[in-house]
């Protein structure tokens, strides 16, 4: 903003304030054009976030008057076994799923981008199909694939001589893998397309020079491709963090609101939904929302610190 003030002052050599006002008047159309976003964000974004903070210090069921309880919601939250379990489940699913998602996406993008592959367009579309499908549809399809007695996966396993998997029973030890497999299937293609676009932006002369210097494929990948892809990797990491920490649809449909056997599939967003919207513990759910958001912001900042060395904005 200072730039505008000084620019106006040098040009017109009048009082800065008057010229600022004139600049604002001259550009009134721009303010009108950007106002829908700021109005809607104010009402449906900023206001709920601020109100959520206030609510997190209150006890309220939505009907009787709200009570101020100070930090009690947070104290109870940190003593809540299910909260910690849900947090653990969410982080476990997110981290384990994203190693193959991001790693696999990078390798696949590198392969598709290489000269050895034809039908690039076909592959891109095929890998992207899961992304345009709704999480609900994907979850329903996978719940039939995971069928214990009739599921296709168990049929393949038995045919190959392995014992069938009891996906939902036992101690619930197969619930997280089931969610992770679904998550990988759905998100690998999206990340691959992003990486592929990044790879196509790399100057091919760099590869030629490297090849002339005798670099092999592995050296080219680790010494040229990865460093140049750093900003794009950061972009996918930040989005993946938010996506993984707020995962709701898939586990909710696969194992139901309580997360299945031993709550093995209970994620933090599901637990928040359960407390906030099924039991109307509005203050408690708000406190949970704030803790989760703090974790997300914290991890995003860590990501930016580690992967965005030279970048100051995202």
């Amino acid at each position: 903003m200072n730039q505008f003030i000084t620019a106006g002052a040098t040009r017109l050599s009048t009082a800065p304030r008057a010229s600022l006002w004139r600049e604002i008047q001259r550009n009134w159309v721009a303010y009108v054009y950007i106002s829908p976003f700021f109005i809607l964000f104010g009402i449906f974004g900023a206001f709920p976030i601020i109100y959520s903070f206030i609510l997190s210090f209150q006890q309220w069921n939505g009907i009787s008057p709200a009570q101020w309880v100070g930090f009690e919601n947070y104290i109870r939250l940190f003593q809540d076994r299910l909260f910690w379990l849900a947090m653990w489940n969410t982080i476990f699913i997110g981290v384990i799923a994203h190693i193959p998602i991001l790693g696999g996406a990078m390798v696949l993008a590198f392969i598709i981008n290489s000269a050895a592959v034809r039908f690039k367009h076909f592959y891109r579309s095929a890998y992207f199909l899961p992304v345009v499908t709704s999480p609900v549809a994907v979850s329903l399809i996978f719940s039939t694939l995971y069928g214990v007695r009739f599921g296709l996966i168990n049929w393949v396993l038995v045919t190959l001589g392995f014992p069938p998997i009891d996906w939902w029973g036992g101690n619930g030890e197969w619930i997280k893998p089931a969610i992770i497999i679904l998550f990988i299937w759905r998100w690998l293609g999206w990340n691959m397309i992003i990486y592929l676009a990044g790879l196509q932006g790399i100057n091919p002369e760099l590869y030629e020079v490297a090849a002339i210097d005798g670099a092999n494929l592995r050296q080219i990948f680790f010494k040229i491709t990865l460093p140049l892809m750093q900003p794009i990797i950061l972009f996918t990491l930040v989005l993946s963090t938010v996506g993984a920490m707020t995962i709701f649809d898939e586990p909710y449909l696969l194992v139901g609101t309580t997360g299945g056997t031993n709550n093995a599939g209970l994620t933090i967003a599901m637990y928040l939904y359960d407390r906030g919207f099924r039991f109307a513990h509005l203050g408690y759910a708000s406190a949970m929302a704030y803790v989760v958001s703090a974790v997300i912001v914290f991890v995003s900042v860590l990501n930016i610190r580690f992967f965005g060395r030279s970048r100051t904005e995202v």
Binding site: F41, I43, F44, G45, F47, P48, I49, Y51, S52, L55, G62, V238, V242, M245, T246, A269, L272, G276, F277, L282, A285, S286, A289, Y290, V292, S293, I296, V297, S300, E313, V314
Partner: peptide, 18 residues
């Protein structure tokens, strides 16, 4: 740009009240 970093979950309860 900063609003893009805010997770939807932060305000979901008051959003529903609203």
């Amino acid at each position: 740009l900063a609003t893009m970093m805010v997770p939807w979950i932060a305000g979901i309860v008051p959003w529903f009240i609203l």
